[in-house]
Structure formats: structure tokens, C-alpha cells
């Protein structure tokens, strides 16, 4: 997942030509491009369809965000009608619902990161200590299973388990409590969201750590043992440093998706009674834009979310490169 470099110097054609000896360099650059195309035109031709995909379905929508600053008429062009400046930005900055969903996004994203980032590490370390091969494989197989389910199925299960007649309420009654419709109570939403998220992702999240664990040099353990290190100290001084690059990479990626907290799942399990804690930026964008048809206003909020997401991942990457020397590119 250490993705290829995107911050590298761009290839020649896209760089500004250096000023003084400009004429010469440009001509040379052109000539080598002509040679490259003559030699590899078949390869380039294979890239045409995929590039069209990226341009139309990835970059065009990015540009389409200009409607955040333009008046948009349904049925009109995809870039809207005329400029309105920062009108929609000012509008959402003054919208109390926006700040409430912004808060909810930060809290849900933060809680998810806090719980769902460390748990796979712990589980991987525990699995790593299992000596019986078949047993280890069995636990792994079972724990990966929820990853393969559609989010709709997961939502369905959550609803069944939390319904008045569901197992959770059976437990509640068994200990003498009063059954309650948990999915309709805002104070429970975060716990429900985060625990179901953990259920679905923890097992799958161990894969990369388990792979990293197998690459740790066994001699290091031998050396640690000779130095009299207990198992606990071996874990602390050999195992954890060994999987640190994986941890950092996954942390950065997790931070990158922080703002986009489980949009689909929330959309499936929230309801007007729980908006107070459950409504996040992406679900608000959906309701304002798609359901109510205020596309420009919704696009302005969505753009804000994307920019924060990009900023988060870039800064996390930068901090990590400066401090621990691991980065995505």
C-alpha cells in the first residue's frame, strides 16, 4: 500500500520549461516524446480507455465541484449557470445543522479510529502466539467473514439484534432492565456504530499485520532471549518495531478516510430520531442535495469535506515522514 510517488517531479512535458536555454530543452523533450510514442504507441493505446475513465468519472466530477460557487439548474449543464461566489460557503458556515453534523463527523470518526485502529493489531499479536496451525487458521477464517458481507446485510443484522425482541434486549431483560428501542435513541448511536464497525473490520484488519509479522527476522528473538528478555519484552522490543511501518501506513490511510465515516452504514441505520448524534457531513450532503435537490449547497459542503480529507492525509503523511520516516510515497 506504499503507493507510488505522486509528489515526484512531474514528467517532462508537464513541467514548466526552464527559462534561459528554453528553446533547446523543449525541442529535445519533444523529440524524445516522439520517439517514445513511435516505439510504444501500442502501449499508450492500451491506456486510452482507462484514462478516459479517470478523466470522465474521476476528474470531471472534481471540476464539477465548481457548482459549489455557481447557480445550478436541474436539467441544465453539469457546471451550472452563473457565478454566485462564496454564497453557498457562507450559507453552510452560518448553518447550525452543518456545525452539528461536522461535530458528529469528528466524534464518530475519532471514536472509530480509536477503537478500530488498535484492535486488529492486538488480535494479530494474539493470533501470532497461537502454536496450533489449524486453530489459528480457523480463527482467522471466521474473523474475516464479516468483511465479505454487504453493508445492507450488516445493517439488517444490527436492526434485528437491536430490535425490541432482539438478543440485546433479551440480555437487558435477563438482567432486569427495561427493553428499549436502541436504534431510536441518540445516546446509543455512537456505541452501536463503533461496535458494529469493529465487528465488521477487526478480523480483516489483521491480514496486513500478520503478513508483516512473518517478515520479522527470527534471529532478533533469539538475540533478545539470550539477553534474557521475557516474552512481553520481546513483543515490545522486537515485534512491535517490526510491524511499525505497517502500523504507520495504515494509520495514515485511516486518517485519510476519517471524514468519510461509514456513509452507507449510517444512511442505513440512522433515522430522524437519532440525527442528533448520527447525522454526519456525508449523510447531510445526501439529504440536502439528492433528497431536497439543493445541489449547489450540498456540493459546497461536500467539497469542504473532501478538502479536509485531503489535508488530513497529506499532513499525516508529512508528519510521519518527518518523525518516523515512513510515508505513503
Amino acid at each position: 500500500m506504499s503507493a507510488p510517488r505522486i509528489l515526484d517531479p512531474p514528467p517532462t512535458t508537464f513541467a514548466d520549461p526552464p527559462l534561459p536555454p528554453a528553446g533547446r530543452t523543449v525541442r529535445k523533450g519533444r523529440r524524445s516524446w516522439r520517439r517514445a510514442i513511435r516505439k510504444d504507441w501500442q502501449l499508450y493505446s492500451l491506456a486510452i480507455l482507462p484514462l478516459l475513465f479517470f478523466v470522465i468519472f474521476r476528474y470531471l466530477p472534481m471540476i464539477g465541484n465548481v457548482i459549489a460557487f455557481r447557480r445550478f439548474r436541474p436539467g441544465g449543464g453539469i457546471f451550472g449557470e452563473y457565478w454566485v461566489g462564496l454564497r453557498y460557503v457562507k450559507m453552510f458556515l452560518g448553518d447550525p445543522t452543518f456545525w452539528s453534523v461536522f461535530n458528529n463527523t469528528l466524534i464518530l470518526g475519532g471514536l472509530t479510529l480509536l477503537v478500530c485502529f488498535p484492535l486488529p493489531i492486538v488480535l494479530a499479536l494474539l493470533l501470532n502466539e497461537v502454536r496450533t496451525r489449524s486453530l489459528k487458521r480457523f480463527v482467522q477464517s471466521v474473523s474475516y467473514l464479516p468483511h465479505f458481507l454487504s453493508i445492507v446485510i450488516v445493517a439488517g443484522m444490527i436492526m434485528q439484534m437491536l430490535s425490541i425482541d432482539g438478543v440485546i434486549n433479551q440480555l437487558v431483560s435477563a438482567v432486569g432492565g427495561e427493553p428499549s428501542a436502541f436504534l431510536q435513541r441518540p445516546e446509543w448511536f455512537r456505541a452501536i456504530y463503533v461496535s458494529s464497525e469493529a465487528w465488521q473490520t477487526v478480523g480483516w484488519g489483521t491480514i496486513l499485520y500478520l503478513a508483516a509479522l512473518t517478515t520479522i527476522d527470527q534471529d532478533l528473538y533469539e538475540a533478545a532471549r539470550i539477553d534474557g528478555a521475557s516474552r512481553w519484552r520481546q513483543t515490545w522490543h522486537v515485534t512491535l518495531p517490526g510491524i511499525r511501518p505497517t502500523m504507520v501506513t495504515l494509520l495514515i490511510l485511516n486518517i485519510g478516510t476519517f471524514m468519510a465515516v461509514g456513509f452507507e452504514k449510517i444512511l442505513l441505520i440512522y433515522n430522524p430520531l437519532t440525527y442528533e448524534t448520527a447525522d454526519v457531513i456525508s449523510t447531510y450532503v445526501y439529504r440536502v442535495g439528492i433528497v431536497s435537490g439543493n445541489l449547489s449547497y450540498a456540493a459546497a459542503i461536500g467539497l469542504f469535506e473532501s478538502i479536509i480529507g485531503l489535508t488530513l492525509v497529506l499532513s499525516a503523511n508529512l508528519i510521519s515522514r518527518r518523525t518516523v520516516g515512513t510515508s505513503l510515497w
Binding site: 503507493a3 507510488p4 505522486i6 479517470f54 470522465i56 468519472f57 474521476r58 476528474y59 470531471l60 466530477p61 472534481m62 471540476i63 464539477g64 465541484n65 457548482i67 445550478f72 453539469i78 485519510g256 456525508s282 450532503v285 445526501y286 442535495g289 439528492i290 445541489l295 450540498a298 456540493a299 461536500g302 467539497l303 469535506e305 473532501s306 480529507g309 485531503l310 492525509v313 497529506l314 510515497w329
Partner: peptide
């Protein structure tokens, strides 16, 4: 390709497109 992993147009422009 990789840039689109970290930045995307978002729901609304995609929907309009």
C-alpha cells in the same frame, strides 16, 4: 490514478454527471 485515492469529486458532482 493514485491521486483519486485521496481526493474525489464527491457525491453531488458524480450524481449530476
Amino acid at each position: 490514478a493514485v491521486f483519486t485515492m485521496f481526493f474525489n469529486g464527491g457525491l453531488i458532482p458524480n450524481y449530476i454527471l
